[in-house]
Write a protein that binds this DNA or RNA. Structure first.
Length: 307
DNA sequence: TTCCAGGTTTCCT
DNA sequence: AGGAAACATGGA
């Protein structure tokens, strides 16, 4: 006898300065994204969120009254209890739901670089990558290659070694490969999909650190300071300052994380200033002086202007 | 074909 | 400490 598949739905009040539209716009930036899917009308996003040993397929959309609709399916009814709390927790982390954004908008209103983006993308949140290995893996994959190619590499990795769940319409929803899985690979397994030799080594060794528990989110957060987390991360081969700050920003959620070497950031600044050349680091330090404590958000809003 | 991309390591002075 | 060079592959 087949157990009934449950469907769960709930509605959440949007916090102040939270709008799904600019968030979905960001999530839809690559048609090659393989870990979640924004629907054609851009009104909702769907992804598999592995929690409590289950693989619910979760959809986040907005109602006409501004409330946010959270629904999930694909889980046996008997396994549902307790799941909605975990799913909601993941979604809140993913979308930085609880951030008090008022100070950011106050600051941005008087900032020459942020004024425009903060207005144009009002309600945008710093979309996170809650899983540490996913954040590290995505950052390493994206080092020094264009974003389009990075998405292609991620898709190859995910579809080869990730887990997945199939919904009632037969659509497969992927999750990022487990650290344990990647830790057990040989470099050739990854170079075969055009991941460079070095990155293959980095990915496998970082996966090993995560898999054996020596590198955890809790440990990186426990020291409390961005500087400590950065030092721990950059001591690992394959993780430089950009990757450390990228992970601090999108996974550890340090608000002052600041991947200042990021090419995307440079391109966004150049675009807003209308200059010919990309800004030099000392110039960016000057331009960002007023962002103190909001560097991660400032970076994210500037990225958003590129897509 | 050339340039460059959400860098990091290694090797120089 | 600071800077150049090597790496390595595809997208536009």
């Amino acid at each position: 006898m087949i157990e009934p598949i449950a469907f769960h739905e709930e509605w959440l009040e949007s916090p102040p300065h939270f709008r799904l539209e600019p968030i979905l716009g960001y999530l839809a930036r690559s048609a090659n994204e393989c870990l979640f899917q924004v629907n054609e009308s851009g009104s909702e996003v769907t992804r598999c969120i592995p929690v409590n040993g289950e693989k619910p397929i979760v959809t986040i959309g907005s109602g006409t009254d501004g409330r946010i609709r959270l629904s999930f399916r694909g889980v046996a009814a008997s396994r549902m209890p307790g799941l909605s709390d975990s799913v909601r927790q993941y979604v809140c982390d993913w979308l930085d739901w609880h951030r008090d954004m008022a100070p950011f908008y106050e600051m941005a209103a008087n900032d020459p670089l942020l004024r425009g983006p903060a207005d144009r993308f009002h309600g945008l949140r710093l979309v996170g990558v809650p899983d540490l290995f996913e954040a590290l893996g995505w950052a390493i994959l994206g080092q020094q290659i264009n974003l389009a190619f990075a998405y292609t590499l991620k898709r190859r990795l995910v579809e080869a070694y990730g887990d997945s769940a199939v919904d009632e319409r037969g659509v497969r929803h992927w999750t990022f490969p487990a650290a344990e899985t990647v830790a057990a690979l040989r470099p050739e397994d990854l170079t075969a999909m055009s991941i460079t030799t070095k990155k293959a080594e980095y990915l496998i060794s970082v996966a090993g650190l995560v898999a054996d528990g020596s590198l955890t989110k809790e440990r990186l957060l426990s020291a409390g300071s961005l500087r400590e987390a950065e030092r721990t991360l950059t001591s690992i081969r394959g993780i430089g300052p950009w990757t450390a700050h990228y992970v601090a920003m999108r996974c550890l959620r340090f608000p002052d994380a600041f991947p200042i070497q990021d090419v995307g950031l440079h391109l966004a600044i150049r675009k807003i200033l209308g200059t010919e050349a990309k800004p030099a680091i000392p110039e960016i330090l000057g331009l960002s002086a007023g962002w103190r404590g909001w560097e991660a958000y400032a970076t994210f809003f500037l990225w958003r202007t590129l897509y």
